[in-house]
């Protein structure tokens, strides 16, 4: 099959990865605190590059925001637009293609653990310090589950996913 121009390939690739990430998010939604969005966006950023990574994060977030038609809009939309692109920035800074799984696990584990911190900041501005603090404290069990599950999934899956994606990158995507 004839390959498209690099720009068209990028657009398709980013869209497919964002859609894949969204699909995985939906599948895991019933499991409290467990998600593979962080891992998939981090792996994509490491292998495909920061520009494509942050674009995939923004497309994924925008697809997710469409869910607000069902779940209702809220300040979580702001949180998502902060957190997912921020993850790609952190990935760009702390992870390289050859980074070990432990490094990735620590980064993604801390990201999961502190996921709600920006939300606490939003609530501080909107509702004041008492509400923000009680919100953050009541979320501790979920943050612990999120951090632990991110750590473990990255520890086991970061390298295999990054290596396979890297092979696809040079073999099929030609980017």
């Amino acid at each position: 099959m004839k390959q498209g121009t690099p720009a068209i390939r990028d657009i398709a690739l980013i869209g497919v990865w964002a859609a894949l990430t969204f699909g995985v998010k939906l599948v895991l939604a019933p499991v409290i605190g467990v998600e593979l969005v962080s891992l998939l966006l981090a792996v994509f950023t490491v292998v495909a590059g920061f520009g494509r990574g942050i674009a995939a994060a923004l497309v994924f977030t925008s697809i997710t925001v469409l869910e607000s038609a069902y779940y209702g809009a809220g300040d979580w939309i702001v949180l998502y637009y902060i957190n997912w692109p921020l993850l790609t920035v952190l990935t760009r800074v702390f992870l390289k293609k050859g980074s070990g799984e432990l490094r990735a696990a620590v980064l993604l584990g801390l990201f999961g653990l502190l996921f709600d911190l920006p939300s606490g900041g939003i609530k501080l501005v909107l509702f004041g310090p008492v509400y923000a603090l009680t919100y953050l404290i009541s979320g501790i069990p979920f943050d612990l589950a999120h951090g632990a599950s991110n750590f473990i999934t990255a520890l086991f899956l970061f390298r295999p996913l990054a290596d396979r994606l890297d092979r696809l990158k040079s073999g099929i995507w030609k980017i």
């Binding site: 501790i140 069990p141 612990l144």
Partner: peptide, 26 residues
């Protein structure tokens, strides 16, 4: 080694959770 590290992380999280239930939860 990975299983051991995962178990250690889970144990730390469980300890923090017990602390949360004891001191912070309604």
């Amino acid at each position: 080694k990975k299983i051991g590290i995962s178990a250690a992380v889970l144990a730390v999280c469980a300890l923090i959770f017990v602390g949360y239930l004891t001191f912070l939860a309604p």
